[in-house]
Structures are given as structure tokens and as C-alpha cells.
């Protein structure tokens, strides 16, 4: 009986349940990092806990939306969905400095192009190395390596196989996950500590979720700069990959 009551509370107040859940995750993450004297890592540990829960959720339900496929946690889909993510990202622009933005404008734009091209080329080469020879499938997997939105868009535009499409989404998700985990760990080494390098980083990595998570765990003050360039990345990818990207791959193959 109590179990039903609890279930009922969680499902009727799904968004509030998500606030509670995230609060618990962050509490655990912060306690954990405090005991090992790495308090700065609190956010990244919380993100990794989130990813583990996503894996568990996908395993238990067989669904595609991580933990939010479990009825108790449907609210996580609202809180962590695109609407709240974008709303909160935009709010971080408050307090960003106009001069910093101008300084990093040109390198930011160049980074966008180099980021899309580099990811695409790496994706195509890896797919080739694993035995793919069809230019449509190669372009699709390359597109997925750009971001997990570009992959399916390319697949639909060019009529790729379902296998290539699934792989392209997976490559994009892996990229954003690895970006979230790796960024705070190597931020110092790649001098990711000022607005200019944050804008360059956003342009090179491009995955909005990866950049968002990575910078949040590194230095929240850099979030607006990285997010600013990253948001143009998927658009540039959907523009370049199915057109010029496919043209180049098919003329080489």
C-alpha cells in the first residue's frame, strides 16, 4: 500500500520528483568528492552518476531515454530535456562580457569549421577501417561523429542503411559522453581556462550536451562562451555533411 502511495506521489509530481532526484544525486556526488578532497570534481561526478543511471535505465526498460523510461523518474525527461537545457543555457549569458566575445569571435568561427570537418573525417576513416565501403553509410557515420543529430539527418537525406544510422547516433552519444567526462580532467593541459579558449572549445567539440556538461564541471563561468559557439555546430554540420561531405566521400570512393 505504501509503495503504491509513493509511486503515485512520484508520478503525479513528476517534475518535482526530478528536482528531488537530482538534488540527491548532487548531494551524494559532493559528499563523495569531499571525502577524497576533490571538491571541484563534484559536478563531474554527478554527471557520471547520471550517465550510469542512464545506462541502468536503458538496460532495465530497453527504452532509449535512459532513466526517464522508468515511471518513477519520468520527470528527469522534462528537467533534462531540450527545453530546460536551452532556457538555462541562455540565462548563463547574463554577465558574459561583450569584449571577451569580440576577442574570440574569429577563432570561434574558424574552430566551428575545423571542428565539424575534423570530426567528420575521423568518423569516415574509422568507418572505413571497420569495413564500410558504401559512400552513403560512410557519410552517415561521419555525420554521427559530428553530432548525434547530424547522423540521422544525413541518413534520411541520403537514404542510409538502418545499421549505419544506429551507429551514427551511437558515435555521437559516445562523443558527447566522453566530452563530458574528459573535459574537466584535461582542462588544465589544454589551457581551457579563459573565455577565448572556451569559445574555441565549444566550436571544436560542438556537442551541446557534451560542452555544457564538460564546462559546467570545469568552470561554470566559461559555460556561456562555450555554449555560444557550440549551438551553431549542429546547424553547420547538417548543412555541410549531407552536401559537400557526401560529395567528397563519394568522389573518393
Amino acid at each position: 500500500m505504501f509503495k503504491d502511495m509513493l509511486m503515485d506521489i512520484f508520478t503525479s509530481y513528476d517534475l518535482v520528483a526530478a528536482f528531488l532526484t537530482v538534488a540527491v544525486i548532487m548531494f551524494v556526488a559532493n559528499k563523495l568528492t569531499k571525502t577524497i578532497n576533490q571538491e571541484r570534481m563534484g559536478s563531474s561526478v554527478a554527471i557520471v552518476i547520471g550517465l550510469i543511471l542512464a545506462y541502468v535505465g536503458g538496460k532495465v526498460t530497453g527504452g532509449s531515454k535512459g532513466i526517464s523510461d522508468i515511471p518513477l523518474f519520468t520527470g528527469m525527461g522534462i528537467l533534462g530535456g531540450g527545453m530546460f537545457r536551452d532556457y538555462a543555457i541562455i540565462s548563463t549569458a547574463y554577465g558574459a562580457d561583450m569584449d571577451n566575445l569580440k576577442k574570440a569571435g574569429l577563432p570561434g568561427v574558424i574552430s566551428l569549421f575545423i571542428g565539424v570537418i575534423a570530426s567528420f573525417v575521423i568518423g569516415v576513416i574509422v568507418a572505413f577501417a571497420f569495413g564500410f565501403r558504401n559512400p552513403v553509410d560512410l557519410t552517415t557515420i561521419g555525420g554521427g561523429t559530428v553530432t548525434f543529430v547530424v547522423g540521422p539527418v544525413t541518413a534520411t537525406a541520403l537514404g542510409a542503411s538502418a545499421e549505419a544510422q544506429a551507429l551514427s547516433i551511437a558515435a555521437g552519444v559516445i562523443k558527447s559522453v566522453v566530452t563530458m567526462i574528459l573535459t574537466p580532467l584535461i582542462a588544465k593541459k589544454i589551457k581551457l581556462d579563459n573565455p577565448t579558449s572556451a569559445m574555441v572549445y565549444g566550436g571544436l567539440m560542438g556537442t551541446t550536451s557534451g560542452v555544457a556538461g564538460g564546462l559546467a564541471a570545469t568552470d561554470p563561468e566559461l559555460v556561456p562562451y562555450g555554449a555560444m559557439t557550440a549551438t551553431f555546430y549542429t546547424g553547420l554540420g547538417t548543412l555541410l555533411v549531407p552536401s559537400i561531405g557526401y560529395f567528397i566521400v563519394s568522389s573518393i570512393m
Binding site: I49, G50, A54, G77, R85, G213
Partner: peptide, 9 residues
């Protein structure tokens, strides 16, 4: 962002 990471595939 933490909630977002928990709903990835």
C-alpha cells in the same frame, strides 16, 4: 545537465 546526462541513450 545532471538530469540531461541521466536520460542519454
Amino acid at each position: 545537465v545532471v538530469a540531461m546526462s541521466s536520460i542519454q541513450n
